[in-house]
Simulated scan of single mutants.
Amino acid sequence: MKRHPQGPIVIAAGGTGGHLFPGQALAQELRRRGRRIALITDERVQRFDRLFPDADIYPVPAATPSGKGVAGLVRAAPAILAGVVRSFAILGRIKPAALIGFGGYPTLPPVAAAILRGVPVCVHEQNAVLGRVNRLVASHVGAIASTFDAPKFLKARDAGKLVLTGNPVRDAVIAVAGRPYAAPEGQDPIHLLVFGGSQGAKVMSDVVPGALAQLPEALRGRLSVVQQARVEDIERVRAIYAAAGIDAELSSFFDDMPERIVAAHLVIGRSGASTISELAIVGRPSILVPLPHSLDNDQKANAEKLASAGAAWAIEQKNFTEEALATMLTSLLADPSRLAAAARAAQAQGQPNAVRDLADLVERLGRGELPALGTQARSADTAGGPGVLNFAIGGA
């Protein structure tokens, strides 16, 4: 395999913000180091290309198998294979130094193509559970960067590749990370931030406004709520807050979310990897409601990590009712010391050097200072060509 250590670094990321935001953070750091960046992503890139203004962007076909049966795999296979073919051609043209995949099925085609090409590859796992694509390719990559020291489903044979880097966060998050937390005392305003991830969450609109409306009048009068809501939910949410006399700012998207987080006394949200990392870096207490249908319950594992550190309160969606939330908020907001302690605990979990450590890892990989491929793939390459990869779509 001919190396191209001065070639671009390829970031393979797609789907939701949870995968794209760490890739964006890495791209920002690598650009500061003078590296060229290429992004290979799925064909929804039009929604996210502004996150990578200095990158060469290549959309490729991708698909997520629907359901657990063979039929779902069969339906997804043509798009995935087409994505591998296109990615293989792209990598041949741009001659990258290394490729890093951020998980999710949109990254499978470029990661597979890079392995076939002999490009040095690593993957990054943001969650406390090793994702399905990362599990699928783990034995073929040179390194597995991770937010957590023992992600679930990491096989013993691949444990030696694990590098604890943390989850990179965007420059905008780092910029606000040093601002102190002051719990609301006496009659101080109480700033709540409510959001449901990059896709929004209907349950937040269904539960949170009604719960806040049940709080004692004196407490309601102190509330200042910022809530992300789906477009179709905004007017009914606005009406509930208005009837309850609660000051609220609503939008389907906030492009200054780090500023919103740092201004909050308490955050109510999902527990995706980027949310967890940003709450920890900024140091803000939270009530976390894991997405109940996430693959392998990764959001539940993330929430439990933060809750076990005393930085958050986790509640499963089936128990996330107006009455339960109102009771929890009445207790928490009456005790500023609990909020302050949770803020300190959150910040203690932060990994502010994650982007630097991940960039170091990728550059070392591109220079050949780490094994370029896993044992099985290296053996195939040594035998006279890239060989046949020993994985099947959807395998674990």
Rank of each mutant, 00 (worst) to 15 (best):
A324V: 15
E323Q: 13
Q317A: 03
N319H: 13
P336K: 07
P336C: 04
A307P: 00
K300E: 13
A324L: 12
T321W: 08
A311W: 01
T330H: 08
D335P: 03
H293V: 15
A307Q: 06
A341F: 01
I315T: 13
T330L: 02
L333A: 03
E322C: 14
E316V: 15
T330V: 03
E304N: 13
A314H: 07
W313V: 15
R344Q: 12
R344K: 10
M328W: 08
A340D: 04
S337F: 08
T330K: 01
A340I: 13
A309Y: 11
K318L: 12
K318H: 14
N319Q: 11
M328N: 06
A314G: 07
P336M: 06
E323W: 09
Q317C: 04
N319M: 12
A324H: 14
S331D: 15
A303K: 04
A340Y: 03
A326E: 06
D298G: 06
W313A: 07
A301W: 10
L332W: 09
T330M: 00
E304S: 09
A342S: 11
A314R: 06
S294L: 02
K300S: 09
Q317Y: 04
N297K: 07
A301Y: 09
K305P: 02
E323S: 12
L329N: 06
L295Y: 01
Q299K: 04
F320H: 02
K300M: 10
A340K: 07
R338F: 01
A326L: 06
I315E: 05
A326F: 06
A303V: 12
I315R: 06
A307R: 02
T321I: 09
M328A: 10
L333R: 01
S308Y: 07
Q317T: 13
E304T: 12
A343G: 03
A309L: 05
W313P: 00
A309T: 11
F320S: 03
A342N: 05
N319V: 14
L333H: 00
A326R: 02
